[in-house]
């Protein structure tokens, strides 16, 4: 089943609303923040064209930047995420290959595949985000602390969102 442009648009508006209205103010101990919008990028169809993905990542990052008032930061890290996604997808290809009906969720792909996929991409995305934000090697400890704690937080939130919105398609 193909994910239509309308579904993508609704998903993006939903995740933008969540990010800007709720998750903007939620942080655990001033270090962990959930960048829930990566859910949108992670859930793009498995066969999404890489070039289109790059531009979509950049554009959605820029919209997030616009509302969080962080010019360039989320655009940069989302572009990186979308550049790495085809690469990690091909690295994780199951023996039987991907099925067109499958979604990148733990329901469709199983936990080991999902953990490697989501955790890997979220970690790289967050590392890049916090490095760009702090932009100084002086605070390398802070960058790592923020990245690791926020990766865990985002991962839990993304998994919960998948649990609430996705159904097994196999």
């Amino acid at each position: 089943m193909k994910t239509s442009i309308l579904v993508l648009a609704i998903r993006f508006l939903g995740v933008l609303f969540l990010q800007v209205v709720f998750f903007k103010d939620i942080s655990i101990a001033s270090t962990a923040t959930a960048l829930i919008y990566v859910w949108f990028l992670l859930m793009l169809p498995l066969d999404f064209v890489p070039l289109a993905g790059l531009f979509l990542g950049f554009a959605s990052g820029l919209v997030i930047d616009f509302f969080l008032q962080t010019p360039g930061i989320h655009a940069g890290s989302s572009t990186l995420l979308m550049a790495l996604r085809p690469w990690i997808l091909s690295g994780l290809t199951p023996r039987a290959g991907y099925d067109v009906n499958q979604e990148p969720t733990f329901m469709d792909m199983g936990w080991p595949w999902y953990l490697a996929y989501s955790f890997g991409l979220i970690l790289v995305h967050h590392l890049f985000t916090f490095s760009l934000e702090i932009l100084s090697s002086e605070f390398i400890g802070l960058i790592i602390l923020n990245t690791v704690s926020s990766t865990l937080f985002t991962w839990v939130c993304v998994t919960l969102v998948i649990l609430l919105t996705s159904t097994p398609r196999r």
Binding site: P50, L51, L54, F55, F58, G61, D65, P71, G72, I73, A75, G76, T79, L80, A83, L132, L135
Partner: peptide
């Protein structure tokens, strides 16, 4: 290499915005 070049251009633009 259009994917690679698009990536480099977009990333360059983002970092330029940040810096």
């Amino acid at each position: 290499n259009r994917v690679l070049f698009s990536f480099l251009i977009l990333e360059f633009f983002s970092i330029w915005l940040v810096v």
